[in-house]
Simulated scan of single mutants.
Amino acid sequence: MTTHRLRGLADSEPAARPRPAHRVARRRPQVRDLPPAGHNVVQLLGPPSERQLTGRLNAILEVLGGRRAAAQVQNLVDPALFARLLTHSRLPSTRHRIGTLHLCQPTDLALEAATTIRSGPRVLALAARFKRTRTGWVCTRFHLLAPRLGPARAVPVRPSAA
């Protein structure tokens, strides 16, 4: 039978050292990587979550309802949509609830959202488009589709000749 015995280290033999943790070399930012002066850049990992999109749509709806200043959503929308929000007629100031959000990403740089809005007894449709920019995702299109006002017209049906 074989016997095993541990031997001690000799005086000249170095002890085994633990291996250092893996380090990732970080590249220093170059001048071309930096944004223009006065611009903030967020890390663009991917599209915003449904919760973030619902919050942005809710903020735009509050601007349209007059419960929020338009300047608060200026960095969330593109300049053309911001100008439209400033001149747009106000919605009735009833509370609204955003329904389930339906998302579609036709390209890596675009995201489209559709949902329903409950505003009192009315139900409205909402369609929005978000675009990825250097400073984050901004809303470029925002369409609130209201039902037609007025009585519905009946289409006359002609009897078939038989």
Results as ranks from 00 to 15, higher is better:
Pro121Arg: 06
Met1Asn: 08
Leu103Cys: 03
Glu50Thr: 01
Arg68Val: 00
Leu76His: 12
Arg67Gln: 09
Gly136Tyr: 02
Arg68Leu: 07
Pro147Ser: 02
Pro48Gln: 00
Gly136Ala: 00
Leu64Met: 10
Asn58Arg: 13
Glu62Cys: 11
Arg141Ala: 03
Ile60Ser: 11
Thr107Asp: 09
Asp108Asn: 10
His39Cys: 10
Arg51Thr: 10
Asn58Pro: 03
Val41Gly: 02
Thr115Asn: 02
Arg27Asn: 09
Val24Lys: 09
Asp108Val: 04
Met1Glu: 10
Thr140Ser: 14
Val31Asp: 13
Gln74Pro: 03
Pro92Asp: 05
Gly99Thr: 01
Arg122Glu: 14
Arg118Pro: 00
Thr3Arg: 12
Val123Thr: 09
Pro18Trp: 10
Met1Ile: 06
Arg141Asn: 03
Arg84His: 05
Leu149Gly: 13
Pro35Gly: 04
Asn75Cys: 12
Leu9Cys: 11
Trp137Val: 01
Asp78Phe: 03
Asn75Gln: 15
Pro79His: 04
Ala154Thr: 13
Ala146Trp: 02
Glu13His: 11
Leu109Ala: 12
Thr107Ile: 02
Thr115Val: 01
Thr115Tyr: 01
Leu101Met: 06
Arg17Met: 13
Leu101Gln: 06
Cys139Asn: 11
Thr140Asp: 06
Pro121Cys: 01
Ala80Met: 09
Ser12Ala: 14
Arg26Asn: 07
Val31Ala: 14
Asn58Lys: 12
Ala161Leu: 15
Arg129Gln: 09
Gly150Ala: 01
Pro147Gly: 00
Arg28Val: 11
Thr87Pro: 02
Arg118Met: 10
Leu124Trp: 15
Arg23Gln: 15
Pro29Gln: 04
Pro79Cys: 00
Asn75Ile: 12
Leu145Gln: 05
Gly65Thr: 10
Ala125Met: 11
Gly99His: 05
Thr87Val: 08
Ile117Pro: 02
Ala80Val: 13
Leu9Trp: 08
Thr135Trp: 01
Gly38Tyr: 09
Ala10Ser: 07
His102Phe: 09
Thr54Ile: 08
Ala80Lys: 11
Leu109Met: 08
Thr115Leu: 05
Arg19Pro: 04
Ala21Arg: 15
Leu145Arg: 03
Arg118Trp: 04
Leu76Phe: 11
Arg90Asp: 01
Pro14Met: 02
Ser93Lys: 10
Val77Ile: 01
